[in-house]
Amino acid sequence: MADSPEEIQKSIRKYLWIGGILIFFTVVTVGLSYVELPTHGLNILVGMIVATFKAALVALIFMHLNHERILIYKVLAFTTVFCLALFLLFIFSASDPLVFEGF
């Protein structure tokens, strides 16, 4: 585990760097939102990709998910699956985009 004093000393620099990167990408998000891409859907997609990247940085570095115990990963994996169900199945059952064409 990276909890020894030397490791922590090293990671302080890392935290500052990540903070900088996060701020940079916030500016990027704001800027990109004013650029009109061919469809607004693309704008949303790009915005969400950047946001997911930022969120991943926070989760991996700040929340130490890059070196966590297997148990935490298990819990989070299940949560992610159920969360995806929450996102996808809601909208699928309302708009029914999946069509079965037959064998």
Binding site: T26, T29, V30, S33, H40, N43, I44, G47, M48, V50, A51, K54, A55, V58, A59, F62, M63
Partner: peptide, 22 residues
């Protein structure tokens, strides 16, 4: 406490573009 705080930040990272920008 910090983990909780990061989570609050993480939610905002999605909230900001979804509500303000896109």
């Amino acid at each position: 406490g910090g983990l909780f705080w990061h989570f609050v930040d993480l939610v905002w990272i999605f909230l900001f573009p979804l509500l303000y920008l896109l």
